[in-house]
């Protein structure tokens, strides 16, 4: 397996966080806490505006991850690809009105028991330069 692309990074992706998008996501995953949908409840809890559920990180990171996973230089066999594991480490909360910039890099490429592991890291920062989340995305391709 060609490991020369470990460390390769991809263009930053900017995402503008909308209030209705947070509400749509919160409703889809079944969140009931009004801090995710009601501006006044969010402010009373100390947030600038409605706050995004932690896993909303996948929504604002997706635009950075797409070009990384689709990189022809990595030549991932999508027919045999599984999303094997995922980690997020959260820092600053994300609220409606924020602009989040995410950068993806190739963290590791390795072969184990005939399976190929493609590991990406994403780092997201808000408009104040504060980190909101750091993601580790592991895709596994069976059969090499």
């Amino acid at each position: 397996m060609d490991t020369s692309k470990i460390g390769k990074s991809y263009p930053a992706f900017e995402y503008e966080v909308g209030r209705e998008k947070i509400r749509e996501y919160a409703n889809a995953v079944g969140e009931t806490n009004p801090v995710y949908t009601d501006r006044e409840a969010a402010k009373a809890a100390g947030f600038r505006d409605v706050v995004a559920p932690p896993m909303f990180a996948v929504v604002y990171s997706a635009g950075a991850m797409g070009p990384a996973v689709l990189d022809p230089e990595l030549a991932i066999n999508f027919m045999m690809m599984l999303h094997g594991s995922q980690e997020f480490v959260w820092s600053e909360p994300v609220c409606a009105g924020d602009t989040i910039t995410t950068t993806a890099t190739v963290k590791d490429l390795r072969e184990e028991d005939g399976r190929r592991f493609y590991v990406f890291e994403s780092v997201s920062i808000n408009q104040d330069g504060k980190e909101t989340v750091r993601g580790t995305w592991t895709n596994i391709v069976r059969g090499g």
Binding site: N33, V35, Y36, A45, V51, A52, P53, P54, L82, H83, G84, S85, Q86, E87, F88, V89, W90, P93, T136
Partner: peptide, 14 residues
């Protein structure tokens, strides 16, 4: 306490 600020890290295997 249903406070999104208190979830610091989550790692899973699918």
């Amino acid at each position: 306490g249903d406070d999104p600020r208190k979830l610091k890290r989550l790692s899973v295997q699918f």
